[in-house]
Design a protein around this nucleic acid. Sequence first.
DNA 1: TTTGAATGGGTTTTT
DNA 2: CCCATTCAAA
Length: 670
Amino acid sequence: MVRLMDLNPEQREAVKHRDGPMLILAGAGSGKTRVIVNRIAYLIEQGVNPEHILAVSFTNRAVREMEERVADMVNNRKVAKKLTLSTFHSLGVRILRTDIDLLNYPRQFTIYDPSDQLALIKRVMREKRIDEKRFDPKYFQAEIAKAKNEGQEPKDIRDIMLREIFLAYDDALRTCGAVDFDDLIRLPCLLLKNHDSVRQRWSGRFRQIMIDEYQDTNGVQLQMVRELASIHGNLCVVGDDDQSIYGWRGSDVENIRQFDKHFPGTRVVKLTQNYRCSGNILDAANKVIEQGVGRYHKRLWTEQDNGALVGMAVLADEEGEARFVVDHLQTTHFEEKRKWSEFSIMYRTNAQSRALEELLRNERIPYKMIGGTKFFDRKEIRDLIAYLKVVNQPKDEISLRRIINYPPRGIGTATIDKLSAFAKQRRSTLYDACLHIDDCSTVGKAQRNAINDFTEMIENLKGKVEEGRSLALIAEMLISAVKFQHALFKEYSEVKEAKKRVDNVDALVNSMIQYEGKADKPSLSDYLDRVSLEPSGDNSEEEDEDAVMLITLHGAKGLEYPIVYLVGMEEGFLPYFRIYESDTDIEEERRLCYVGITRAKQKLILSRALQRRRFGRMEDREPSRFLADIPPKLLHPMGIGGKKPAVTEEERDEKFKSFFSEVFGMLEKD
DNA sequence: TTTGAATGGGTTTTT
DNA sequence: CCCATTCAAA
Ligand SMILES: Nc1ncnc2c1ncn2[C@@H]1O[C@H](COP(=O)(O)OP(=O)(O)OP(=O)(O)O)[C@@H](O)[C@H]1O
């Protein structure tokens, strides 16, 4: 049930808006997402078919958040399920799975992640005899991504070599039956633009479109949105130019600033009251963002009390910082009877989570890491996934090459080169050449046998998939067929290491079982899609698990927590500096800082270390320049700079003892 | 063809 | 410090 009285007048106006374009431009915590959620529920109440409603956001996490909030409000699972709430990329996949054949790709396409992408670019470069030493494949990868995000096609590229590689790379993708991440937006966009039937289908299907975090859209996404809204113009976007933090992947704040020019007749709604942060926190945030260069003026206000001061902790080193945060967190948890899930620790880079994780684990504090690709980056996991990808789409040459000789089965580089030549000669894919290897005289008998055994196994597994056998079962068959575990023990002389890897493989199989348990229509290709689109594996079964959140600043956008720790407030981290490169966009870093501060509802603790290990060497660290923008009267010094020294271990033990005796005392009374 | 040792290069952020 | 890649020997 929508309760319009839970909204302020501006929000109410936005929720009740029905047809035509609308822009909600508003600051952090002003209830933008709340408007979207309410508007979805309101539309349903007004009789709009939920299948006609589309809401898009950027991160998987933000989509999940929206799903939960909508589900709570609609309170009808069957109706909620009919809604389309998704990221741009999964929406792209959905469109492509239906219509990609119009572009000459198979509907069973696979999705290449950046490392597959790089591998393919390297292949293309080798084919073209372009020296990888002289020309960095990563450069081309970046340039191609940029071009795709700007909506450029190979013919638009001036640089001859880049154009040639782009062209060949795109060709190669098609041959592999694969698309890359950027294609997940670019190709649907091409389809919608060039095929009226496609546009009619999708724009007709989604008659009410909402987009959260619109300031993060890039050129191609704008085009895609335009096409999707072309039939009806019912497009509602919400965003905040002060929270634009994806410039590095082509997002363009002008999309939101010029929205009313892109969509004439736009109704503009501005929200300026912040409902999230206590006064001091909002003050600090305002001070940081106000120093922004080239910023459009906007000021948030709140009715809330000042609340606690913002903690500013200075510690000796990385470990000291982690220790401080964990101690403080633990003390607050007990003293204020806070649930673990009320805490969140945020950082600029995933690597910064290590020290924290270690300590949290030691202290047995439940935590959940959002983002980070650790699991699916492990070699053994990638290998297994590569096998499944080959079973799913044998054209996928990158995956095929990855596993054709892993575990080693006597098909070395020499053989693969011959195989590749054979494939080229008969104009077939590499896998097809494997199937007909007996017609290839250049490959020796032993190798031919090995290849035949290999294809036989893959074909067998393909059969199982077609029979509709369970995914986990297929994976298990695969693991035993290739003696995967045996290979791991052979590969890692350290038994402990090998065991760990075997455990990882088990964990992957388990994730498949879980997936099959909860998916609507489980299938291998759907599973692989999910793994590609959400490699962080944030498939938190335990949705409302009580755990501390560890998350990057980017990942935290749109989320909120009662207590937030912002660690690593140092030059080099925030703003982030890369060695040898000085292209950091300071203003974007500032906005990132603003995003971090405005995640906190009641308490915010900033921290920094004086020294940090980097490349094994200790380095001195300077405070982040953004700290200087926060008036000292808002800050409460802690750690080394605080009045009280950091809590010592004895003191902490003392606190626990008294806490427990208190608890026991309460129990005895009962 | 497989293997292990040497070497060199480098830490964003997400889909 | 930790990796990925490369290179040389078995
Ligand atoms: N009218 C209101 N009355 C009370 N609480 C509100 C109101 N509007 C929003 N809130 C609360 O304020 C908080 C922030 O809302 P929301 O997440 O929708 O903001 P947002 O504008 O999307 O923030 P961000 O820009 O950070 O993503 C939420 O806890 C929400 O419940």
